[in-house]
Design a protein around this nucleic acid. Structure first.
Length: 459
RNA sequence: GAGGUUGUAGCUCAGUUGGUUAGAGCGUCUGAUUGUGGUUCAGAAGGUCGUGGGUUCGAGACCCAUCAUCCUCCCCA
């Protein structure tokens, strides 16, 4: 058979992995400086933990794992019955009890609900793991991809929104990726829905206006009419998303629009508080990124109830590279009421694609092995093994060429692996107690005492 | 789930209206060079043309199916 890997998955070579790790380490270090603690959860969850949390479309994209033992003759009748349910589009524990995690937020909520007695609130955790979606792969879209989430559970304080915004600005500042952070509030969108056909229309309205920059105003209006809004209501939506100007001007216009709707005013006040606090502090790290009030920002996930975030890279055609928001009652889905939360997510794979396109990765992260010892024979190899072992104990990565070969070949190996130094210790050098060190980039070669190797390799 | 693109050597790709033994560049290997790479020169290996059918005297090329791929929509990171 021809070797292959599943659609939408990738192998990561050394060069790719170093770049990915650079992104992951940058994010992790920022998370840690804000006091978030690591958490990892299993690749699979119980199917019922995930189902129904991501909307109808989301349910279809969850990878379900087939149960074992379905061919047990004793259970044949039950399995056939269960499978018929699957054919009708229902998921069924008898067929698929487990599923691959779809994101990190729901597993986090499940974890908080399970461990609420042991946790110290507010509970601040970060999580960096792969997630899986049965999506059709395309540019910036994979079936296995990594997310990095930071969430706070058990606090309604807007301080967290401010700090999470600062995390976004600091991470992308360190990665040298220019971004725009869009911010909106579900309460404001709720107020809009209340004015235009009722609260239960909020999802339809938000999904439609979320497409504004992609399909344009007319198509958005068509979609709204299709959802059953009256012309008058559609006009209200249009005037809402047409609000332009600075953040302050937008908020002022919103206040006028929703002056009689408490929910809307609450959302507006939250935005004002967050923006005021963020703007007063962001100069300290001189991360110049701004928060942009974006009234067409909606986000599809239906558990958000307050602030919502989305991060877009500037100068690259790519969907959002980060997103998040506040949810009042996430653990309520698991029977634990009253734990509010807020969190953000980084899309590692898209950040990688963006950085690749912007050639934003620093050269320095591609260093692997520091020195390659040439192999000039079995006896010399044994001697060199000791020298190498000595250097390794001091934290210097080095390799010995695996067999005696023409220098030509050994040089090429060093070159291809991007190894900066070649060290030659042959019979002559062993006798003299020296080593020949050649720096490949410059071609300069120096003979030195074996004891001086450390300095010779630039340490 | 809907629509489209592409599939030829390890990689990137040529291959004329269907016509003899399917090519190039890069890479790999060997030698010029028995302890000094990147340059140069000479040579070699490497292909069931994604897979399976069909049309034809003859198919890499045309038709059908299938698989893979990338892209767009839906939705999302």
């Amino acid at each position: 058979m021809k070797p292959s890997i599943p659609q939408g998955t990738r192998d990561f070579s050394a060069a790719v992995l170093r770049k990915r790790n650079f992104i992951l380490q940058t994010i992790r270090s920022v998370f840690e400086t804000y006091g978030f603690e690591p958490l990892e959860t299993p690749a699979m969850e119980n199917t019922e933990t995930l189902m129904g949390k991501y909307g109808e479309e989301g349910d279809k994209l969850i990878f379900k794992i087939l149960n074992n033992g379905l061919n047990n003759p004793d259970k044949k009748e039950a399995v056939i019955q269960d499978f018929n349910a699957v054919l009708e589009g229902k998921t069924n524990k008898g067929i698929t009890e487990r599923a691959l995690r779809y994101d990190l937020t729901i597993p986090f909520a499940r974890y908080v609900a399970m461990n609420q007695g042991q946790l110290t609130f507010p509970f601040k955790r970060y999580q960096m793991q792969p997630v899986w979606r049965a999506d059709r792969p395309q540019r910036g879209r994979y079936r296995e991809f990594w997310q990095c989430d930071a969430d706070v559970a058990g606090s309604a304080a807007l301080l967290h929104e401010v700090e999470l915004s600062l995390i976004y600005t600091n991470v992308f500042n360190k990665l040298k990726v220019p971004v725009e952070i869009h911010i909106n509030n579900r309460k404001i969108l709720g107020a809009l829905a209340a004015v235009c056909g009722g609260e239960d229309m909020m999802m339809d309205i938000t999904i439609a206006i979320d497409k504004l920059d992609k399909i344009g105003m007319e198509k958005v209006k068509d979609e709204l009419i299709g959802k059953g809004l009256s012309m008058e209501q559609v006009d209200t939506v249009e005037s809402f998303i047409s609000i332009a100007g600075s953040n302050d001007e937008k908020l002022k216009a919103l206040e006028d629009m929703f002056s009689s709707i408490p929910q809307g005013l609450e959302g507006i006040n939250e935005m004002k508080t967050i923006l005021g606090s963020f703007n007063a502090i962001k100069g300290i790290t001189s991360a110049g990124t701004q928060l942009h009030v974006d009234l067409s920002l909606a986000r599809g996930l239906n558990y958000y109830t307050g602030t919502i975030f989305e991060v877009k890279a500037l100068g690259v055609q790519m969907g959002s590279i980060g997103g998040g928001g506040r949810y009042d009652d996430l653990t309520g889905l698991f029977g634990v009421k009253g734990i509010a939360g807020v969190g953000i997510s980084f899309g590692v794979d898209r950040i990688y694609d963006v950085m690749e396109e912007l050639t934003a990765f620093p050269e320095s992260i591609q260093k692997g092995t520091t020195a390659l010892f040439f192999n000039t024979g079995m006896e010399e190899q044994q001697h060199v093994l000791g020298v190498a072992e000595n250097l390794r104990s001091k934290g210097i990565s080095c390799e010995i060429y695996h067999e005696q070969a023409k220098f030509d070949k050994q040089f090429k190996y060093a070159e291809r692996k991007n190894i900066p130094f070649v060290v030659i210790i042959g019979s002559k050098e062993i006798e003299a107690g020296t080593a020949l060190v050649k720096e490949l980039a410059s071609g300069t070669q120096t003979e030195m005492k074996v004891d001086d190797l450390l300095q010779g390799l630039g340490y």
